[in-house]
Design a protein around this nucleic acid. Sequence first.
RNA 1: GGGCUGGUAGCUCAGUCGGUAGAGCAUCGCCCUUUUAAGGCGGGUGUCCAGGGUUCGAGUCCCUGCCAGCUCACCA
Length: 505
Amino acid sequence: MTKETTMSDEIISAEAEQKQLDDIFSQRKAKAEELRAAGIAPYGVFVDNIIPTTEARAKYVPDVENTELVTVAGRIMTFRVMGKATFLHIKDQHGSLQLYAQRDLLGEEEYRRFKRLDPGDLIAASGHMFVTKTGEITLKMHSYTMLSKSLRPLPEKFHGLTDMEQRYRQRYLDLIMNDESRSLFFKRIQIIREIRNFLESRGFMEVETPMLQYIPGGAAATPFKTHYNALDCDMYMRIAPELYLKRLLVGGFEKVYELNRNFRNEGIDRRHNPEFTMIEIYQAFGNCETMMELIESMVTTIAQKVFGTLQIKLPGDKVINLERPWRRAPYRDLVRERTGRQDWFELPREEKYKLAKELGAQVMPDWTDLEITHEIYEKLIEHTLIQPTFVTRLPAELVPLAKKCADDPKSVDVYELEINGQEISPGYSELNDPIDQRKRFMEQVTLSGKDPAQAVDEDFLTALEYGMPPAGGMGIGVDRLVMLLTGTESIRDVVLFPQLKPRQN
RNA sequence: GGGCUGGUAGCUCAGUCGGUAGAGCAUCGCCCUUUUAAGGCGGGUGUCCAGGGUUCGAGUCCCUGCCAGCUCACCA
């Protein structure tokens, strides 16, 4: 408090005094000062031997007098003063527990102070366990310790916090008030842990590669641009780790993955957050087939360990069955099936255009064969692939960085894993021909009109020229995998702090 | 970027035909020693998202903007 008080301030404050006293924030600050005045620290006291509320509850032994001293700590969620006794619930990370305070146990002065606590305050309490008339296991308090005075009122106890914007902007409030939200994030954490456990058990090594890159490669997305002062040059947040992970394959690392953030300077919506968690996995001497086996095994293992089932219930009574083996369907077969024409790929462009329109695809007159076909795939087929499906053997033009199928140069040896009508993961037999790779980079440069020095990662090409082993590679959008496994409809609900526009005051 | 919906007390919400803003929870005072959305009595609480306009008068009607949610488009 460095602000000087002037005469006019005092006159104003005299008027504002009553209002100030009524203000919850001011009232609680005053309560914190009361505690200080009584020699009690309102913040930051260490308490030993705290156990989770769940363990405390388990300590209760029926039909005997429970004498063991138990200490718990948490945030006061409800507070019911009934004269000389008070019931309250506290919540910790593990759950909540009812506490019971009596004047006769705490002592008159201490109990009077206790009644001045508020919902939102953090306390530790020691006592023994008992069960109330209504059958709730409760801690009868012998003593308590103030841990943190809350100066702001919590959201309403019954309805909680429902305003989506506030839940995202003040996630801590969402986590305090909404158990479903909290357990969803615990699920996310478990899923990520099981991904790591699984890959560890398969002999993969987790690596970290640059997030700040001079040439943002490995995907065709708009990057975030930044500036490195020490070197006075522009840099970019990575859009993918792919090109660095492949350098590691050249370097002799055979099974590597990176599970971390990518940044893409694109729109925000229900499925997109500008920073998102991606896993990329590469296995030397593997191929697309290796990757299909890997992801199938990985996702089913995770589902089993985290959810204990392979049947995922989604909103709208949909059930995804993850039991193996998952369906494999060549792209061309799906198109032939949907169009009802075995000779679809032999038809002239005009015929395709006409048929596509009849089927309800919004195709443009100037589109190529490939564009028409792919529109049918994306708009008429993809969303129908509810159960896990590997779509294989895509047209080569669609996937420039994959190997061609040995038996068909028009197709590439890749999969796209579709679950619930959405692409969950692409996997490739990775291109390791440095001459071909250079050619494809140059084609991209021509298409985008960028400066080759800014768009072609020469160092990566140099690495390939030393020889990269043939490899299988795959990526998974981790946020979307979590959404799928938890039946969540918005990426913002599985990201702790989703990006929102800054509030302007 | 387009369309739709919303923004009122700390939170959840109501607000009629345009007449100067309400409830519950929270909070403050009093009562209450097994309550649990505790209960009873009493009190205080507002930048009605922002800025314009219409009007004697706007939370309400009109315009513009901001923020959010949904949706469409875009997006390797």
